[in-house]
Nucleic acid binder design. Sequence first.
DNA 1: GTACTTTATTTTGCATGCAATACGCTCGCT
DNA 2: AGCGAGCGTATTGCATGCAAAATAAAGTAC
Lengths: 228, 228
Amino acid sequence: MSVPSPIIEPRHGQRSAFVTEHVRDLIVSGELKPGSRINERILVEKLNISRTPLREAFKVLEGEGLVSIRPNVGATVVALTLEAVEDSIEILIGLESIGAERAARRATPEAIEEITQLHERMVEAFQSHELMSYFHLNQEIHQKIIDAAQNAALSRVYAGESARIRRFRFAGNNDLNRWDRAVREHEQILDALVRREGPLLREILRAHHLSGWRAARLALEQTPSGEP
Amino acid sequence: MSVPSPIIEPRHGQRSAFVTEHVRDLIVSGELKPGSRINERILVEKLNISRTPLREAFKVLEGEGLVSIRPNVGATVVALTLEAVEDSIEILIGLESIGAERAARRATPEAIEEITQLHERMVEAFQSHELMSYFHLNQEIHQKIIDAAQNAALSRVYAGESARIRRFRFAGNNDLNRWDRAVREHEQILDALVRREGPLLREILRAHHLSGWRAARLALEQTPSGEP
DNA sequence: GTACTTTATTTTGCATGCAATACGCTCGCT
DNA sequence: AGCGAGCGTATTGCATGCAAAATAAAGTAC
């Protein structure tokens, strides 16, 4: 998957944000290889912007854990090991455990309605085999459940950690059996939320993530480099 | 507490990091007031550096949640509400719960030894009433316990969230009774870790944070602005 | 041929200047 | 006096140039 080059110049005051988003996509899509150094000049020419916003983007992405900056050397795409991803998954599960019980208690009817609609759209994406849109809706549902817990810190931390390892989780969706199973698990998740059964929701989410990661890990271990 | 101005110029390739640290101190110490806009020119003159590294520092601090950047307006010191801090505390407790059980199982003897030494230094600081050094050692102990769990993502997320609200937690240490109690709680924490009693460690840590935050919150509610 | 200097080139880090935007102020109007 | 339009100033966003450092290349000794 290739990230298109910008045709229209971003407006004044949004260059930095634009560049950040673009470089993030380049990393997440794998176009910038994990472990490789990022040459500023090349990217600057490609994106048609100056080095200033690019270097600001690097700082942001470093905060997100996508690149690492060494003084006088520059930015390097972080190469995550499977173990590091597993660490993140464990934290995500922990955060969802915290969020699940709170969400079951505190979710507004509007939030539940929104999640239900997302769920239905996700099922549609599944039925028409639109993997990409399924994947995004899936992620969004999990984030919305967390948001329903109404803890700003939780939402922020979860979003950050989730973004970090997004590309790795994508790998698990290739198998159709797994995909089908994931959708059924999501049915249960929604059901538990609607019935506001906190502990149940927590356990389903936990199992859901574990089986999802098992599938992703299997797929990832096939690739020789250990990269998505 | 006032943050001293730099006398020696930081070395090439470290200006940005230096500025980040300095501005972070200015925010944490309260010298830059929550909710106020940060004027680049003034800081640039004060720190004797150019705007480039300062603006990079803003991006980093934005990632840490200490400032918010609006396009064409600039950086504003984030004003946390007590509710937002409470949200973070809840996450920190959750993260320590995850970390506690793992740490009890996986902590190396070296890690335990290191934490024991930190604890002893902390007790000394307490006995000689060195509040600042007590506070820092206290924070370091909690981080080291988390680190002992050997989950890189956990360490990173915990460190970030902990830094965000550091200045608020400081407020709870003013009362000598509370201080004494906290030290005794830390004795128990260390004991549970040494004996590798995960669930116990988890519960003590939880209670420790809750009572600490209760004290801090009380102190903070006295101040009219709700700021430390 | 290999290992170690020394030099040239590239690349990064920072300072600075210009353009775009936001902010404050005066002035006119009601 | 209160309010809004227009203008001037201050401030931010970005591009660019120069200096420091790192990397690559050439040369030299062994």
